[in-house]
Design a protein around this nucleic acid. Structure first.
Length: 599
RNA sequence: CGGGCUAUGGCGCAGCUUGGUAGCGCGCCUGACUGGGGGUCAGGAGGCCGUGGGUUCGAAUCCCGCUAGCCCGACCA
């Protein structure tokens, strides 16, 4: 069907909608693709729906190509499965909850791990049934505290989520790699630049995880990359660990008075006064800062954790949260915050501003060996033999020349400090630079967490029940439309890549002579017969300027103008992206456009 | 959840300081002209000024409460 603008249900806006800050949001509203229905919730107009459909079609094709099968779950789900996995409460306020007339609890699904797991448990019971990959393209609901940027972070959004079910870890690896490949092909076909970055599996408890980021300054994810090709989410960056240092000849430590030095800045200034040295001024990097955090455990308890790090760095709470589970007996999902005054009061050995690991053997104040039994984790830069200026656990005093391992010990190392530009990449591929990205997809190996919780087991070759292992893989579909709009536009409007454009050709007729409209209609019909999708601006009393502006705003890749050249048998073909235009004979235009679109 | 801002025809805004019968641009309708870059002229339709209370002879305007929205931050497979 030829889409006629005279009757298409849409309206372009001359002015920017005031609520839209980011370009993709502004343009999608202005060009008549979407309308806001409520904060973070959008209505799709015919034009938008066409783009959305094309994105979905590409995703379907690539998912089907790796043998995944499409299913469709309800978005409205009962409480029970989410209660079983603990997510009914864990999800907190982010979950849309509602009650039916009997008072039973329901939710609008934020994601569907539970339902997929239960479905496989329901239908399958043997290792012979595996592997199986299932997916759906479906609405998700999350009551975001602050939806933003139009489609980029909505409260209702469309996600393609798939799940793999395997009998063993080798199978899971295979499923993971199959999805990884499919994702790279999907984004390639969408025309979206994508960088797979290492991510933390975090509380999901898997062994491997990657995010597919679309580099863009409005993105909400910070990642780092090196010239040599390393890329990782900041939470997943690993520190380049210096070699251990031989400390057999290191001088003994010395406690010095450093009055009024509760901060690293004041300490460094004071050190240069009370302990000047020939080899140069003291720097913050030589001090050992000890930060006390409070961890809220899954059990509800509050446990103090001390983190030792070079004084020129700050703690990155997200990185600590991502890495701390391994150091806690309880494991699991942990939330961290700075320790309160009350927390510190319970441990009189900790003197705020002058906290140190302790002065030599038997005098530890941090770590499980200490009197206060506070878990003490250090940044990987704190290697055996490294020498530090740090708190002496006494107000107004610091210790100089405290040697790691000789004078103090710790319970473990943890990635905990903010990653700085210029830090070396862990694979030696050069210094890191930070950048922002939009998370377009995320794949991870879930392992057995959900299968275990929901008792999804099959019989193995030996007739024994075995918990299946799972992977989970998501693509943000509505977000992909937003990212495409964000990255394909100019001052005049959108510029869709051909694969996702709402049509192949935007036909504009200028003037008012009936012959012009007849010729345009004929070309539109012929293009349509040739399998080319056409938007035809057949509006009678609309000026040429308005039609040109609308065509550029809507952003179909090829614009054809039928107007004053027709008397010479010519029409104009314009490339939306480059602005290049050429006159083409009326008789050849259909063939030429067919070659352009299909070729 | 903290901070900032806003709420007046479909959209974008002015009016509020200093209270007195609601205005502009765009869009929409009618007609004429125009017809390759958001054109011109004339005529028109459309508003409980977010909501509740207060002050006042009189409130879009002043005072108090509430609600909603936007932006920044916190949070967010």
């Amino acid at each position: 069907m030829v889409l006629k603008l005279s009757t298409m249900f849409m309206r372009t806006l001359r002015e920017d909608p005031v609520e839209a800050e980011v370009a993709s949001h502004r343009l999608l509203v202005r060009a008549g693709y979407i309308r806001r229905a409520a904060p973070g919730i959008y209505t799709w107009l015919p034009l938008g729906l066409r783009v959305l459909g094309k994105v979905e079609a590409i995703i379907r094709e690539e998912m089907n190509a790796i043998g995944a099968q499409e299913v469709h779950f309800p978005a409205l789900l009962p409480r029970e499965p989410y209660e079983t996995t603990g997510r009914w409460t864990e999800y907190g306020e982010g979950l849309f909850r509602l009650k039916d007339r009997k008072g039973a609890d329901y939710l609008l699904a934020p994601t569907h791990e539970e339902m997929f797991t239960l479905l496989v448990k329901d239908l399958y019971s043997s290792y012979k049934d595996l592997p199986v990959y299932l997916y759906q393209i479906q609405n998700k609901y999350r009551d975001e505290a602050r939806p933003r940027a139009g489609l980029l972070r909505g409260r209702e959004f469309i996600m393609k989520d798939s799940y793999s079910f395997n009998i063993d870890d080798e199978g899971l690896d295979e499923a993971y790699m199959a999805h990884r490949g499919a994702y790279l092909r999907i984004f390639e076909r969408l025309g979206l630049e994508i960088l797979p970055v290492f991510a933390t599996a975090g509380a999901m408890g898997g062994s491997k995880s990657e995010e597919f980021l679309h580099p863009n300054p409005i993105g909400e994810d910070t990642f780092v990359r090196s010239a040599g090709g390393y890329a990782a989410n900041v939470e997943a960056v690993t520190t380049v660990v210096p070699a251990d240092i031989d400390y057999t000849d290191a001088p003994a430590f010395e406690v010095k008075d450093t009055p009024d030095t509760p901060t690293i800045e004041t300490l460094v200034a004071c050190a240069n006064e009370v302990a000047p040295r020939a080899s140069g001024a003291w720097s913050a990097a030589e001090t050992l800062k000890n930060v006390v955090l409070a961890a809220k455990l899954p059990t509800g308890e509050r446990q103090l954790v001390a983190i030792g790090l070079p004084g020129d760095r700050d703690v990155d709470l997200k990185r600590v949260e991502a890495n701390i589970a391994a150091h806690l007996e309880t494991g699991g999902d942990v939330q961290l915050e700075a320790a309160s005054e009350d927390d510190l009061k319970k441990h009189p050995t900790l003197v705020k501003g002058y906290i140190g690991p302790g002065l030599g053997e038997g005098k530890a104040v941090l770590g499980l060996e200490s009197a206060s039994k506070i878990l003490y984790l250090v940044d990987p830069r704190v290697v055996p033999g490294s020498t530090w200026v740090t708190g002496a656990n006494e107000s107004g005093k610091h210790v100089f020349g405290l040697v790691a391992e000789r004078d103090f010990t710790w319970d473990g190392t943890i990635e905990c400090v903010e990653v700085h530009e210029g830090d070396p990449a862990p694979d030696g591929s050069g210094p890191l630079v930070t950048a922002r990205g939009i998370e377009m997809g995320h794949i991870f190996q879930l392992g057995r967490k959900y299968a275990q919780a929901l008792d999804c087991k099959v019989l193995d070759q030996n007739g024994k029940l075995k918990v299946v292992t799972m992977g989970s893989y998501g693509v943000g579909v509505t977000r992909a439309v937003a990212a495409l709009a964000e990255s394909n536009r100019d001052a005049n409007g959108l510029i869709w890549p051909r694969n996702v454009a709402p049509a192949d050709v935007h036909l504009v007729v200028t003037g008012k002579a009936p012959e012009l409209f007849e010729a345009a209609q004929k070309i539109a019909d012929e293009l349509h017969s040739a399998g080319i999708e056409v938007i035809y601006d057949d509006r009678l009393k609309v000026s040429a300027g308005v039609k040109f502006s609308d065509a550029e705003l809507i952003g179909v890749p090829t614009i054809v103008v039928i107007g004053r050249g027709l008397v010479d048998g010519l029409v104009e073909v314009k490339d939306r992206a480059t602005g290049e235009r050429s006159d083409v004979s009326v008789d050849e235009v259909v063939a030429q456009l067919t070659a352009l679109v299909k070729g």
